[in-house]
Design a protein around this nucleic acid. Sequence first.
RNA 1: GGGCGUAUAGCUCAGCGGUAGAGCACCUCGCUUACAACGAGGUGGUCGGGGGUUCGAUCCCCUCUGCGCCCA
Length: 851
Amino acid sequence: MLEGLEQRWSEQWAADGTYAFDRTRPRAEVYSIDTPPPTVSGSLHVGHVFSYTHTDLIARYQRMRGKTVFYPMGWDDNGLPTERRVQNYYGVRCDPSLAYDPDFTPPEKPDPKKQVPISRPNFVELCERLVLEDEKVFEDLWRTLGLSVDWAQHYTTIGEKAQTASQRAFLRNFARGEAYLQEAPTLWDVTFQTAVAQAELEARDYPGAYHRIGFGRPGTDEGPVFVETTRPELVASVVALIAHPDDERYADLFGTTVTSPVYGVEVPVLAHPAAEMDKGAGIAMCCTFGDLTDVTWWRELDLPVRTVIGRDGRFTRETPAWLASEKASAAYGRVAGKTVFSAREETVTMLRETSEMEGDPKPTQRMANFYEKGDKPLEVVATRQWYLRNGGRDRGLRAELVGRGEEITWVPPYMKSRYDNWVGGLNGDWLISRQRFFGIPFPVWYPLDDEGQPDYAHPLMPTEAELPVDPSTDAPRGFDEAQRGKPGGFLGDPDVMDTWATSSLTPQIAGGWETDPDLFERVFPMDLCTQAHDIIRTWLFSRVVRAHHEQGVSPWSHALVSGFVVDPDRKKMSKSKGNVVVPTDILEKFGADAVRWRAATARPGLDSPFDESQMKVGRRLAMKVLNASKFVLGRVDGATTDPFAVVDPVDCALLGRLETVIRRATDAFDAYDYTTALEVTERFFWEFCDDYVELVKERSYGDDADSVTAAGTDSARATLALALDAVLRLLAPFLPYVTEEVWSWWREGSIHQHAWPKGTDLGSAAAAAPGVLEASAAALAGMRGAKSQAKASMRAELASATVRGPENLVRGAEAAARDLRASGRVTGDLTFDVDDSLTEIVVEAHLADPA
RNA sequence: GGGCGUAUAGCUCAGCGGUAGAGCACCUCGCUUACAACGAGGUGGUCGGGGGUUCGAUCCCCUCUGCGCCCA
């Protein structure tokens, strides 16, 4: 019965434009949402499905509250993940030195080990081709899940809208001095051969070994100074030994020089508080660069740069100038061109040959920085990169950005401290350039001087009207293509923007910033951004940075942060662990409504373990909605939802209860607490089915003219209809399919375009206290209990029943005496005795003898 | 080491000053004219440990411990 609803209704919604944004409405009537553009080259797991469902619950609620909802979906298709997927999928790799081949076709049988080198334009073409396929799959999934996205507002992070917005924002950042080009030590991934930003780092334990190596003290009788290092190969690039200023062991050495083992290079011994006295020998070898501490020392102690590791992660082939001596150059010849790993082995061999290493290496675990997508530790390489100011080097800006965070309502509130911690812990500006191919290029060229050397200090920029540009194929104003790379000509910036540098502008891209001012004014700043907690430091923060620089505001008023779906052992789902739950499987098995129901039970911010048995509960609810509706609609001919017909005390009590439920669900949704909204609605719905419907069933049939008045029948039918009408709307954000199906049986139009219920829909009857319902439900439960204990059928008749309890409850139940007699099948006496020694209803019942 | 969260029934979670709640699971019963992919009834907990505040603490405060995440 539930099967096929997804396809049928999602097609209907698409055809009717049910979720179309109305751009004629004023800002006050708009609710705008910034939702993460999923990485289409990646695979979705059930956690994404939950998080996007959370957004949709809010979107649907706001729409029913009368807002027109701006709910665009974007695809994050640029960047490294797509490049990697294209390499594997087509068996190619990008070689920017090659020329474009218009006739290129990818290999028929891709061999990942023998990737065919192709030009950058060819590579980008393949990327564009593949993301189209991926995006189709994603869109289908979102439609099946029932996301009420307005697909007309769609964007991609590589598309022209995104290119123009990213380049325009960059030009303005540059003009205001917020973006700048700098040659500086940069964390570098040797596998992907690109620079990596602080936000993409991941500290991991990495096995290493302490090598105890000695530095000579020429001109003294003293023995060598020993350092313990996990990276002996870097002895080739040592620039100083550094100990803590308070370390008495080395006090005498400060200001003297020592000579490096193997190479015999003379370096100073210096003091700096960043040296850790209790780590290793307490004195460290500073190399440019082994890690970020080296960068600090290099900067603060004004040390020279001695780079031996190239961008490919290998030792440079030419012998560096400071290793010019015969001894040093001979030693360097043995490591030149080697990978870090091989160079380390060779260096250890040399250290043993010269007896400058003491003992054997001692295994240790150290924390090393990794690119989150990489599996080799990052190196530090001096390169020229674009940076965007994000407060990492500016206390004032940092304070302003923390202030922007305070303008946002965080759901749950404690997620703000993640943001504050991250902003407070920044230690450098945002590195936005990447040495990759499938991304948005920097709209920048550099003039070449008479010798063909680029002048980085005076970059050439396009006007905003010329955007988007690709400096690798477009020539700057005043030049022509023939001057590319020639002395007196120009050079295009070869880098692309980091994917976050594009997706940090999603509110601007989707909202039509500078291209559609009328739209932008209606949707920006947005009302809501949603994401899981892992991207607070990246996506959330970077959007605040961009909006702060460009518009001087926080990009949204609310941030809703979802937790993760973790596996049953509470471990994070990841491909490598093989514990990923594929969303298409569960959607097929349980249906979209069931999966959405389960997602809605995961509160904002809290991780939730995946458990299939929970999906069944959602499915059962959807099924119950269908069945209960079938019953109610079989009782009410036409639309008899007239509150004035409701006169019976039990019916009034039900509406009174419903009024409270509507109020609580509305308050909860207003506070972004969709879980509580669902909880109170669902509880009401089950009570409605189990107690109320059972109580009034006989009365609603209206075929027992002797015992039931026509008014009572009308009252029950009107109440059934009123309650169903309201409860369907309360459930609509959670179960869009089944509620729409039922709605279509007796109402016009889509339930998703109808108003959220209000207490006033229920008329004055809803002012009744729900006590009668509670008391009669308890009495009914008592009768059922008696039958259950007697192991009798629920249809079994009771010869007599006595309802006892405190006065208010007994009187309440007595008001429903007729319904109780009918639903409990009491054939003989039904009496109500007040007994104030009791605190609740107790039923004493005698079964009729079986005939 | 710092920050944040969390600890309640076998499991997933509500409750957050006034005699412990739901769903799942489990047990028993029942095919009843909305529903057997169902319904009815029931079993099950010194609310992580220790202090304190209070007439009263699962709830507030302190502390310890476990777990998770983020940052060093």
